[in-house]
Design a protein around this nucleic acid. Structure first.
Lengths: 340, 340
DNA sequence: CTGTTAGCGCTTTCAG
DNA sequence: CTGAAAGCGCTAACAG
C-alpha cells in the first residue's frame, strides 16, 4: 500500500503558528476579531501546508454541513442533466455542496434515498422532476415527513405543505397553447403521447383536453397513447398503432424523444412532415435540433426554473419568506415539424 | 418560521431503549456482540422514531465518510451525464454517496473544486472525462497532490502515478479503425473535427494520423479543424470552411454533436450523405439516432468503463491491488452516414 | 484580540 | 454481552 499523507488538522496549524485552535478557527471563518498580523501568519501557514478544514467536523460544530441533496430519477435524462448542472453550479456559487442521488422511478428507492439524505444531514433536499409526487396523499407522506426537518424544494412538482417550495413550468398552458396551435393549422386528430403518469403529465393532458374542448372538439380516448422505451421502440409502437387503423394528423408529445419517435414513424411510413403530420415535442432539448426536419418544441425554461429554485432555497435557509409555489411560463419554439 | 422537528440522536435512542449509546452504536453497525433481545428492542425503537444516524458524526469517529467525489466538466454534456448516472448508481449500491461538482473547463476552478473535495473528506475522487489531464507536468500537480491522500480514479484520462487509477476507452484504435474504414470506402480527404485539445483528443488524432500513414497518405494539416459551439455554429463554421475552397469527402468527428454539425452542413450545401460525404461521429449517443440519416458512430462503452472504475475503486479502498491503467476496446457502429 | 473549554453525534477501545 | 470514556476536528460561548 502507498503511504498516505495524513490530512492536517486545525491543531497542526495552531501549533505551527503558535496560536490556539480558536484563533485558527477564527481566521478560517474570517472573524473580524483577529489582528491583521496573526491572521496573516496563520493564513500563510495554512496555504503552505495545504490544510483544508474538515467539512464534517465543521458541520458537527456549526449544525450545518452546507450541503444540499439533489434527487432525480436519472441524470442520464437530458432534461434532468441540464437541471442538475444548473442547480449544482448555482449551489456551489452560494457555498453549498451537492450530494446527488439518481433514484430511478421505484417508490421504495426514492423513499430510501431521501431518508439517507437526512442521514447526511443535508441542509435541504431538491426533488428534480415530476416523478416524486405520487397520486395518493398517503404515498406522498415520505416527502411531508422530510419537510418537517428540512426544507424541500420541488422542481416541476407540486405538493402543498409547510416547508415545501415548488417551482414549476406552466405545463398546462404550454399544452393548451400547443394544442390550439395545431388546431389552428388545421389538425383535428391530435395524438397525445406520454410515458408514465406524473404530476406534469397530468397538467399537460389537462391543457390538451381543455384546448380541444374550447375548440368544440371532443377528446378521443383512442388518441391518448402511452409509450415506453427508446426512440426506436416508440417508432414501432406508432407503426403498430397506425397499422391497426388509427388515424391522426398530428402528434403532441410530452417529451422530445417521443416526438422524434413520431418523426421516425412518419419517415418509415412515408408520411410527410409537416404537411400530413404535424409534430410538437416538449423540453426544447438538443434532440429537437438534431432531427430533420427540426422539431417544434416547448421550451420550459429549465435554467430559469433552477435559478428560481436556488434563490428560493437561499431565502428559506436564511430564515426569510419564500413563495410556496411559483409557476413559470413556457415558450413555444416553432420549427420544421409544424406548418408555418 | 415553521417549527422544525429536531433530528433524533443516538442518545435519544439509548435513553428510550434503556441501554448505553455504545450498544445502540453496535446494533447500528450490526456488531455480532449484542444479544438478540436487546438488538431487537433497539431496532424497534429506531424504526418507530425514524432515527437516522448522522453520517458525518459517524465519519468523524470512523475516519470514513463513505462518500466519493465526482468531478466532471458539465453533467449537461450527454456523455458525462451517462457516466455520472452509471457511477452514482453503482457507488450507492456499494454503500457510497456521491458529491458532484461540475467544474467547467477553467483550470483554477478544477483545482479549487478538487481541493474542496478534500475538505469534504471524500474517500476518493473520480475525475470523469479527459478534461482533467493538462498538457504539462507541473499543471497536473494538482491531481498528484490529492492522490497523496486519497485514491484518484480517472475516467478517460491517464496520468501515471501512485494511487491514481485510470480507465480509458481505446480512442487511439477507435480512430485508427474509423479512419481506415473511411479510406476503404474510398474517402481520401478526411476532415478531422475536434473541440479543444485534451488527452483523449490527442489519442484520436494520433489514431487518425497513423491510419493515414499506413494507407500511404500524408496528413494534410488543413484537414484538421477545431470547432467551437453548438450544432448550428458548427454547421456555419463548416460552410465557411467549405466556401474558402477546402475540399473533403468525409468527416471524422471527436463527438457526435460535431458530426451532426457536419450533417447539417451537408444538408444546407446539398451534398449527399453518404455518397458525397461520409460522416463518423463518436460516443454513440442518442444524438446519433436522432438525425437522418442516422449517424455512424463509435461506441466507447461508457457503462463498462464506469463499472470497471467502480470495481477498481472498491478494491483500492479495500486495500487490494488494482490495475493502474486499463484500456477498453470500442465498437464501431455503422449507420446511414457511411457507405455500406 | 486571544485562549480555554464544552459540546456536536458517533465509533471504538478498555474494563467489567 | 454491555457500559464508560476517550477521541474525531471543529465551532462557539465564556473568560481573560
Amino acid at each position: 500500500m502507498i503511504e498516505k499523507e495524513k490530512q492536517h488538522t486545525i491543531y497542526d496549524i495552531s501549533k505551527k503558528a503558535g496560536v490556539s485552535i480558536a484563533t485558527v478557527s477564527r481566521v478560517l471563518n474570517n472573524s473580524p476579531k483577529v489582528s491583521q498580523k496573526t491572521k496573516e501568519r496563520v493564513l500563510e501557514i495554512i496555504n503552505e501546508s495545504g490544510y483544508e478544514p474538515n467539512a464534517y467536523a465543521r458541520g458537527l460544530g456549526s449544525g450545518s454541513m452546507k450541503t444540499i441533496g439533489i434527487l432525480c430519477a436519472d441524470v442520464a435524462d437530458i432534461y434532468l442533466a441540464n437541471a442538475v448542472s444548473f442547480l449544482e453550479k448555482n449551489l456551489r456559487q452560494n457555498g453549498f455542496n451537492t450530494i446527488l442521488n439518481c433514484t430511478g422511478d421505484d417508490y421504495s428507492t426514492k423513499v430510501q434515498c431521501i431518508k439517507a439524505m437526512e442521514g447526511q444531514r443535508v441542509d435541504a433536499v431538491i426533488l428534480a422532476g415530476s416523478q416524486y409526487i405520487e397520486s395518493t396523499v398517503s404515498k406522498n407522506k415520505y416527502i411531508i415527513d422530510v419537510s418537517k426537518r428540512i426544507p424541500v424544494m420541488l422542481l416541476n412538482g407540486y405538493l402543498k405543505s409547510d416547508n415545501i417550495y415548488c417551482n414549476l413550468s406552466d405545463d398546462y398552458s404550454a399544452f393548451y397553447d400547443a394544442t390550439k396551435e395545431l388546431y389552428q393549422k388545421g389538425c383535428r386528430k391530435i395524438l397525445f403521447l406520454y410515458r408514465e403518469i406524473s404530476y406534469s403529465r397530468n397538467l399537460k393532458y389537462k391543457g390538451y383536453c381543455e384546448a380541444l374542448e374550447d375548440c368544440q372538439t371532443e377528446v378521443d380516448d383512442s388518441l391518448i397513447l402511452r409509450c415506453v422505451g427508446k426512440m426506436e421502440q416508440i417508432k414501432h409502437q406508432l407503426i403498430t398503432y397506425y397499422q391497426k387503423g388509427h388515424e391522426f394528423d398530428s402528434v403532441l408529445a410530452c417529451d422530445d424523444e417521443l416526438a422524434i419517435g413520431a418523426i421516425k414513424f412518419a419517415k418509415e411510413t412515408r408520411i410527410r412532415i409537416p404537411d400530413e403530420l404535424g409534430v410538437i415535442g416538449c423540453n426544447n432539448s438538443v434532440l429537437s435540433i438534431c432531427c430533420s426536419p427540426e422539431l417544434s418544441s416547448i421550451d420550459n425554461k429549465c435554467e430559469m426554473l433552477c435559478i428560481n429554485t436556488i434563490s428560493s432555497l437561499m431565502r428559506v435557509l436564511d430564515g426569510q419568506e419564500a413563495a410556496q409555489r411559483t409557476v413559470l411560463s413556457t415558450e413555444y419554439i416553432p420549427r420544421g415539424t409544424t406548418k408555418m
